[in-house]
Simulated assay, not measured.
Amino acid sequence: MLIRTEAPVDILPVDRLLKKTFETDAEANLVMALRENGNRTLSLVACNDDGEVVGHLCLSPVTVDGQDNGWQGLAPLTIATEYQRQGLGLALMTEAKNILAELGYPVVVVLGDPNYYQRVGFTTAADHGLTCRWDAPVEAFMVIELLPETLAGQQGTVEYSAEFSAL
Rank of each mutant, 00 (worst) to 15 (best):
M93Q: 04
H128E: 10
P148Q: 03
L100I: 07
V45E: 01
V120Q: 14
M93V: 07
Q118Y: 06
N39G: 01
M1G: 06
G104M: 13
S43V: 11
A101H: 04
L103M: 12
T21G: 08
A136H: 15
D65M: 04
T5S: 15
V64M: 07
G153A: 13
L44Y: 01
L90K: 14
A28S: 11
F122Y: 11
D113P: 09
A46F: 10
R4F: 12
P137R: 01
P114T: 06
A136D: 11
T63F: 05
A166H: 13
L44H: 02
V110M: 04
C58P: 08
W134G: 04
L77C: 06
G156C: 02
D10V: 15
R16G: 03
T94F: 04
L30S: 03
P114D: 02
Q155F: 11
G73L: 10
N37Q: 14
L90F: 12
A126Y: 14
Q86A: 08
D127W: 07
A28Q: 03
F22I: 05
M1V: 04
Y117L: 00
A166C: 08
R4I: 13
A140G: 05
V64Y: 01
A125P: 09
C132M: 06
P106C: 00
M32G: 07
Q154G: 01
L34M: 13
E23P: 08
H56M: 01
S60H: 06
D68V: 05
L59W: 09
E52D: 14
K19M: 09
T81P: 05
L111N: 13
M32T: 14
M1I: 04
M32H: 11
T123Y: 07
L92V: 00
Q154I: 09
K19V: 10
T124D: 08
F141H: 09
P114Q: 07
A162Q: 09
K20R: 12
N48D: 14
L44D: 00
T150N: 11
F22T: 00
T21K: 09
V143A: 10
E6K: 06
G89M: 05
V120G: 13
Y116S: 11
H56F: 02
N69Y: 02
G104V: 14
R4K: 14
W71F: 10
S165V: 12
F164G: 04
H128G: 05
S43N: 12
A7G: 10
T41P: 11
A28W: 02
G89P: 09
L57R: 00
L57H: 02
N48Y: 04
A140T: 08
V120N: 09
H128N: 08
I3G: 05
V64D: 01
A33G: 08
A152T: 15
L167E: 07
V62K: 03
R85W: 06
W134I: 08
V108Q: 01
G87C: 06
D113I: 03
I99N: 09
R119V: 06
N29L: 08
T63I: 08
L30I: 04
L42W: 10
T78G: 07
R119A: 13
T150P: 07
Y83W: 02
G66P: 06
V45G: 01
E139W: 03
E139P: 05
D113G: 02
T123A: 06
V120A: 12
Y105P: 03
F141K: 11
T131G: 02
L77R: 03
L18N: 04
L77K: 05
D10S: 15
G73T: 10
Q118P: 09
I79S: 00
D50Y: 02
D135Q: 15
